[in-house]
Design a protein around this nucleic acid. Sequence first.
DNA 1: CTGTTAGCGCCTTCAA
DNA 2: TTGAAGGCGCTAACAG
Lengths: 343, 343
Amino acid sequence: MEMKKKATIVDVAKEAGVSVATVSRVVNGNYPVKPETRERVQSAINALQYVPNVQARELNTRHSSTIGVVVPGLYNMFFAEVIDGIEKSMRRQGYSLLLNCAQNDPELEMECINALVSRSVSGIIVISPNTEGLREEFYRRIVKRVPLVFINGYHRIPNVSYVANDEALGTRQALEYLTGLGHKHILFVRGENSDSYTVKERAYRAFMAEQGLFNEKDIVDIGEGNNIDTVTSARIKLMKVMPELAPTAVFCCNDLMATGAIRACKRLGLRVPQDVSVVGFDNITLSKLVDPQITTMDQNMFQLGSNAAAVLVEMIHGGQSKRITLENILITRESTGPCKTEA
Amino acid sequence: MEMKKKATIVDVAKEAGVSVATVSRVVNGNYPVKPETRERVQSAINALQYVPNVQARELNTRHSSTIGVVVPGLYNMFFAEVIDGIEKSMRRQGYSLLLNCAQNDPELEMECINALVSRSVSGIIVISPNTEGLREEFYRRIVKRVPLVFINGYHRIPNVSYVANDEALGTRQALEYLTGLGHKHILFVRGENSDSYTVKERAYRAFMAEQGLFNEKDIVDIGEGNNIDTVTSARIKLMKVMPELAPTAVFCCNDLMATGAIRACKRLGLRVPQDVSVVGFDNITLSKLVDPQITTMDQNMFQLGSNAAAVLVEMIHGGQSKRITLENILITRESTGPCKTEA
DNA sequence: CTGTTAGCGCCTTCAA
DNA sequence: TTGAAGGCGCTAACAG
């Protein structure tokens, strides 16, 4: 269908009988303009419904007011909530947000970022980045061109800012809570392709080793950890391994997996928490909607997002990179209880 | 911190010893270039890490490759899943996606759209728009400047495209299913501020009236229907009205509300589905993760999104506006069963 | 096949 | 206080 051709600054200038420079001045309000000419320009603007062309402006000021956000996907509410935090605080500052879903595919993640760079966004936030291997070199290069903030990224790269929960500490706290309940055999459930899992696994290994409770077999990887099938794949995997392993508790790297764990228990005829305790991570809204409600480490996603936004804006204005670490809080709900054999 | 100045097409041309036109040609691959010069240009590009400036390109081709998406919020997974559908198919076509959350606030919704227009996005998709009252005039004006697609929008505006599920039909089907199970007293649970609810309510009224089963009191509005508190507010509201109304079934306008309904039943000591049946709408992943799993009308959010994307692209290329209606499928799960008094 | 050149719409010195 | 003019980085005729 026919679109009305948009009026340009030239049209407005002609209409008002002034130069384009003058129009530019009243639009941006950055230089003095005589009140009456200003008024003349204003009415020309209204008459033509003139809307400045952002591309042109940004082309010649060489900076854009949009930022890029890259997430693995939207299926895990974790990301949706973080984005919400970013969006709300960015909007307040006048930035718009270009969203890219990398589908947990490292290749695609890089593509997305390249696309963002070529759109000359003025900054990029990557949630749960994939920074292993080659990617490090890639990010080192990117950060030379545009400010970068990682949310829950662990691989340190110079000049990148980090906003994260202390997931290692959070893991330890959860584990301490579980051992405090008398549990000695605790499964560790993780996914693939995210530094978060690795950090948590490391914390798990350390803690369990300290307690003399570590067993390699207790670490189970369910594959993709953030998509529409995660709950199911966690359930299936756990139904396979739990009968043999017979743990009294299960620590899951996120609430989706925890949900799967609970379903696995139900199908296996195990009661939660009487027969086995389950703890999750994130505290997405889902975690209090399933039955039993999940005991989980809260990541306060909204704060994660708004902090990242704040740091990014600082960097855009020339600030140094920095690291912000938030602390997790354990939300005790119904999925955990004292170890049976102790009771 | 210092950002490395980006190489421009001129730098590449100089480096490769060719003209900018040639560089442009190899970058865009739209005109023949001798293989060896192409190669020379390529290596110059790599050497300088040249990334084309999208703003500049779009400025002179006069069309942008980004589209805008406006949603009420991300807390209801419904929106996240629709966005996923949009994103995936838009990416394939080379478009990026500017995301705005209007927080179910009609004013903010208009602001978002204005911002999008001034960024000269080449099209806008609005999910569950708020089109009552003044807003109609607003949208009529917008659609003169940029192609517009509404997902699940019901207020007809000329030249706007619509992609929707037949929510009225879906409602009727769900209701027929319930009456088929012997239910005669069915509550209708809705939220505020969205045309979807109104459409469903109309279908409910019509159907129940036909059956001689309608009662004004059976319509309950729980307020905001898509945010983080929806489950809770639905639960609270229903715990208040259910004891008096004593329905044998509850129809909810979305799965969040259905989840709230189930929780309300539990707290009231009513078993689902033995004492009361609950049906939801949308079929978000949550609906099969709660206990009991929710019987719900599937909206196939992914298709909603990808269809909207397809239509928008058509319109961008000059196509006429159109309406696409998808049909819902009832997903029967555990939250519904035969009416007790019939059994 | 390749180079030259004229803009795209806007901002910003520099003069007036 | 205002206007003229030179780009920003790139594409697309138009010549060669």
